[in-house]
Computed example of a mutant assay.
Amino acid sequence: MTGFLEALGKKAAERWLVLLVLPGVLWLATALVAVHLGHRDALHPGAVVDWISRWTKGPHPSGLLVAIVAGTLVGSAAAGLLATSIGWALRRGWLLPGRRRPARWLVEWRRARWGRESRRVEALVTEAIGAAGTASEVVTGPGIAEALARRDAVGLEVPERPTWIGDRWRAATVRVRRAYGLDLTVVWPRLWTVLPEQLRTDIAAAQLAYTSAATLTGWALLYAALGVVWWPAPLIGVVVAGAGVFRARTATATVCDLVETAADLYGPVLAEQLRTPVSGPFTTDLGDEISARLRKDPPAVRP
C-alpha cells in the first residue's frame, strides 16, 4: 500500500510539473520579455539579452534568489491553473447546443455546408446508378469516396452543434442509438465496467489528450493577452490556438471512435451481465430494453 501511494504521488508530481509548472514558466518568461520590450522594441531581442547579462553580473543576495524561484513556481502554477480553467470552459463551450444566436448562425452555416456536400454525394450516386443500370451493379469510384469524405469532414451526421467537436460527440451517441438502441448517456458507466483493460486505457489516454488540447488552447488565450504590452504576442496565441484546436479535434475523433468500438464489441457482454441473453445480432429492441432498464423507467413508459 505504501509503494502504491508513493507511485501515485510521484505520478501526480510529474503531471503537476509537466502540465502546470513548465508551461507556466515558459509563459512567465514570455511575459517578462513582453514587458521589457514593449511595443517599440518588440522585435529587438538583443535588448533582453543585454538586460539579462547585466542583471546576472551584479551581486544578488541569496534571499532574493530564493524569492525569485519561489515566485516563479507559484506564478507558473497559478498561470497553469488559469489555463486549465480556461480549457475547462472551452470544453463546455465546444459542446453547446447552439439554440441561441450567434451559435445558431454557426449551426445553420455548418448545416448548409453539409447539405451542399450531401447533394454532391447524391448526384454522384445517381449518376453512377444511371451508368450501371441498377443500384446493385454500382461500383463506388474515387469520386464518390472523395465526396463522402468531404461531407464527413463537415459532420458524420446532420450538424446540430455550432462546432465540429460538439457534433462529433453527438454523432457518437446518435450512431450507437441508431445501430443498437443504446442510450450512451445512461449505458456508458455500466458498459465501461465490462471493457477490457487495454480498451479502457486507450479511451482514458485519448480523453486525457482531449483535455490537454483544451488546456493548450487556454494557454493560447493567455499568450494573446500579452498583446496589451507586446504586439507579437497575439501571433503566438494564434499559432498555439491552432495547434490546440487541431489536437482537440484529433483527440475527439479518437475518443468517439473508441466509444463506438466499445459499443460494437461489448454491447452483448453488457447484455449478458444484465441477464439478458443475446442469441443473435444485437438488435435495437434489445438496446431499447437495456436503456430503459438502466434509466429505471417504469414499465408503462418503456419502449
Score class of each variant (00 low, 15 high):
254 T>P: 08
265 L>Y: 11
260 E>H: 05
266 Y>F: 10
274 L>H: 04
266 Y>Q: 06
262 A>L: 09
264 D>H: 12
251 A>Q: 08
265 L>D: 15
278 V>F: 04
261 T>P: 02
251 A>Y: 02
264 D>K: 11
278 V>G: 05
260 E>Q: 12
258 L>H: 04
258 L>T: 03
270 L>R: 00
259 V>G: 07
255 V>Y: 06
250 T>A: 15
271 A>T: 01
272 E>A: 14
255 V>A: 11
265 L>F: 09
267 G>F: 00
271 A>M: 02
275 R>P: 02
252 T>V: 09
260 E>P: 03
265 L>P: 10
254 T>C: 10
268 P>N: 07
253 A>W: 07
253 A>S: 13
250 T>Q: 13
256 C>V: 12
269 V>T: 05
263 A>L: 06
276 T>P: 04
251 A>C: 09
262 A>Q: 07
272 E>P: 02
259 V>R: 11
251 A>R: 04
266 Y>E: 04
270 L>A: 01
258 L>K: 08
269 V>D: 00
271 A>Y: 00
253 A>D: 13
273 Q>Y: 06
261 T>E: 12
252 T>G: 11
271 A>W: 00
278 V>H: 03
276 T>Q: 14
249 R>T: 08
274 L>R: 10
275 R>H: 11
269 V>N: 00
257 D>M: 08
274 L>F: 03
269 V>P: 00
271 A>I: 01
274 L>E: 13
264 D>A: 12
273 Q>A: 11
259 V>K: 10
250 T>K: 15
259 V>F: 04
273 Q>S: 12
268 P>Y: 02
276 T>S: 14
272 E>Y: 05
274 L>S: 05
271 A>S: 09
263 A>F: 01
255 V>G: 13
278 V>C: 09
273 Q>R: 13
262 A>V: 04
